[in-house]
Design a protein around this nucleic acid. Sequence first.
DNA 1: GGTGAAAATCAATCGGC
DNA 2: GCCGATTGATTTTCACC
Lengths: 150, 150
Amino acid sequence: MRGLDSIDRNIIRQLQLNARISNKDLAEAVGLSPSACLRRLTSIEKQGYIRGYTALLGQGEDNDGITVIINITLERQAEDYLSRFEAAIRKFPEIQECFLMAGGLDYMLRIELDSAHEFERVHKDILSKLPGVARIQSSFSIRNVLKARP
Amino acid sequence: MRGLDSIDRNIIRQLQLNARISNKDLAEAVGLSPSACLRRLTSIEKQGYIRGYTALLGQGEDNDGITVIINITLERQAEDYLSRFEAAIRKFPEIQECFLMAGGLDYMLRIELDSAHEFERVHKDILSKLPGVARIQSSFSIRNVLKARP
DNA sequence: GGTGAAAATCAATCGGC
DNA sequence: GCCGATTGATTTTCACC
């Protein structure tokens, strides 16, 4: 972030905390006029510092939501295997995060579901259709101790 | 998502794709009037289906940050061990997420660092001070494939 | 970076189904 | 109950200083 000053960083931080904040409130939070703030945000986006904005799924009022952590090993480490897999990943909004892990071929995914039985659908419609997968290991979270904080 | 129909799901999906979409555009995307759309969104949020909205950072040249996934096993499963551990977790802002996993005593943590060598400090100041820990296994992410939708 | 005004959007209210 | 229309308030988006 060499090209960004502390106000720019603050803008990004505010948007991480709440991406749907209005430009007016954002400007107030960082101590600028709305027009100056919008100019900066447009510039920040144009420079590619922000890749997008997304909604983080909750668990619903009945609180039976569930987090599934999935470790995936690919058949081969060839670059085209990685890129085909990663392109496929991006098509499914249920997938909240995906990390390429060091020390192996493992990808780690986090998926948010509304209930445990929905996992069957996810396995059939998503996991089994990812290309070049050798092995899948899924772990269920029974409680979200600490929610993501930006 | 028992309480949500297909339009509600579509609203959520659109917000996952772009959390900063205006209500007017959101309404158009799901085929409703703005007022009906806003009513639904308010209700969806109130029911807790959406935990929040966040900005996804780009892969700019600044991206020397690193994600560490840490699996922790406690010495005992007694309730006071769990609650002491979880209380300790909340004190460290480096810890972004913490899940209590099914099928064992494992907690899974995600930590975000500015650089890899910072892990030494984290291990010394945070991980080694968590109470009741029997075993720690850390995995480094070398690339964040998906933070969510672009 | 700030100001101001036109344009666009939001949010509350209304009647109809 | 849910929808769309309306409307006054608020916000965004410019040109200009």
